[in-house]
Design a protein around this nucleic acid. Sequence first.
DNA 1: GGAATAAAGGTAATCGTTTACGTAACCGGA
DNA 2: TCCGGTTACGTAAACGATTACCTTTATTCC
Lengths: 335, 335
Amino acid sequence: MLNNPTIKDVAEKANVSVATVSRVLNGLTGFSAETEVRVRNAIAELGYQFNAVARNLKLKKTNIIAVLIPQVETTFYVKILNGIEDAAQNCGYSVMVCHVGISGNRTQEYIKMLAERQVDGIIGCSLPPDEKIDTLMAECEIPCVLVSTLSSRYSIPYIRVDDFKASYAATTYLISKGHKNIAMLAGSQDDVVAGVLRLKGYRKALEDNRIPYSPKLVQYTRFSYETGLQAAKDLLNSGESFTGVVACCDEVAVGAISAAYEAGLKVPDAFSVIGYDNTRTAEMAVPPLTTVSQPLYPMGEQAFHMLQNEMEQGKKAENQILPYEIVERDSVKKV
Amino acid sequence: MLNNPTIKDVAEKANVSVATVSRVLNGLTGFSAETEVRVRNAIAELGYQFNAVARNLKLKKTNIIAVLIPQVETTFYVKILNGIEDAAQNCGYSVMVCHVGISGNRTQEYIKMLAERQVDGIIGCSLPPDEKIDTLMAECEIPCVLVSTLSSRYSIPYIRVDDFKASYAATTYLISKGHKNIAMLAGSQDDVVAGVLRLKGYRKALEDNRIPYSPKLVQYTRFSYETGLQAAKDLLNSGESFTGVVACCDEVAVGAISAAYEAGLKVPDAFSVIGYDNTRTAEMAVPPLTTVSQPLYPMGEQAFHMLQNEMEQGKKAENQILPYEIVERDSVKKV
DNA sequence: GGAATAAAGGTAATCGTTTACGTAACCGGA
DNA sequence: TCCGGTTACGTAAACGATTACCTTTATTCC
């Protein structure tokens, strides 16, 4: 950090007081046109650089928000992040991205750091099922919003799609294409939303269509390509027969496609696959992946505005449920 | 931002001066064991929260660095970012990620904002070929380091692999597999490194192996899946015959695989493809993509340490060239 | 002409830390 | 006894902005 000129230097040079410089800088009133010119000239001549840290201290507001994400390895977070960032920037906020790690073990230090740095708000994206994390968020006294997840014990406002319904719809979609033996590559069951609810939706859809549920057709993953690949291999090796697969996310779905490839099979000929999230991974898959689309970018934008409401008006936002949509590509065929 | 207790409150409660509280807080000397206990108890009782903004103002150091990236849509940046973040966190720094946009049009406002926020340093990742961007970085008087790119006009320290050599090696690899008609899906030619140098490496490899260069076998992309797909389609439609494709990045390579899929062809049967970067996209492709691996995570780590050197010792780091490696998977076959 | 009002701009306290400098108490050695 | 050195603090001035509260001057209206 350099020894930049301050508003005091500007004030001296322009022969006014610091108050006047500040007024000019902030577009307030209380100075004449010619004073403004003198001040602006002094600023230009000195190469004056505004110091936001000083302002933040005085105003007790940093205009920084933090976004907590488990990992960015998947493109899932990218769209949310873009939505948050664009909205934040339009409103004069900067965002600090924090990878709390998939196990959430760095969360505690992170939240402490954020509190010290006086961030104005925190957005938690699809956080890992760590017991402590929502406690920390609830107790740190900083406005918080959750995206694509919820807290089971605290009333932290959230924005997400209805995972139960979406998963129900995905399964029903396969059924409508004539599939009867449908496997599920589920997420970790300690994840309340993406794990538990999506599995429940799958089961309910089977039930409502009088298809018996078989635990043997369910494999568990950790939402990653690698675990998806392994789970799909296990499924193929189990000897169970199936023609459709519902995946808990796109990466896992692509893992299933890769497992088929390794086994010399082809999707959707050998079996159909439907993903979840409609990330870039889904577009780029071979074959392109049919998937449940979440409006990730808008979710990010709205999450920011919910947070902004709390930061600026002090009132907690209402929870929001956004619509999903099935995007049809080439990974599902009629049987 | 709440009205937290300050060290003044702590000082009163513990019956000491603020200086003593500060000394305890910072692990300095100059207080007795029993005083320390009193201070720590007061801190605990009041629920005192340290205020980093005040310290930053006083010390003229924020311990925040910014990372400028065009977009995070690709997993390319993710590994670099992880490397930077881990290293930064170990050294007590926080990182602020800034998406300057693929066209770099937000760069100017961003750098101004970063200067105002008094960030201690900036890392520019693979920045877009905007004329102004390195000028801004060079002139903002904040320590800067470039990753996977370089500035043609300013001496900003950089860390990257030798793109010319790596691209030469990728092309030579295809040649060693018996390929003679090798196409290139190049990047934008206004990108000095990933665009120009990788094309040059390709041409030199052809030349050294006495294979005539044909401009018709070169298509240009913008490093994205979409432009890669389109370029590969154009190539297929051009009627030129080729058995191998060198891509400027993994996403473009996957675009080529998808173009083959759409045309009813298969990789590597119809043609072989070699990618660049070894991102997750390469692992997840069907077939898994043979690619040039850049040590992205270590690049991120080292970039941070180069920056740290300049921030803390004030001396610019030496440029660094890191080794590449060809990772063999299933997208290339012998002809 | 005088009172009221508005406009222009200055003074100084404040935000919550860090730290240079001062001081009092204590100890040990000659 | 006196001196020098150490330890354990306290005092107060920064850091660079914002802003409440003045003061001065000009303008307006009866």
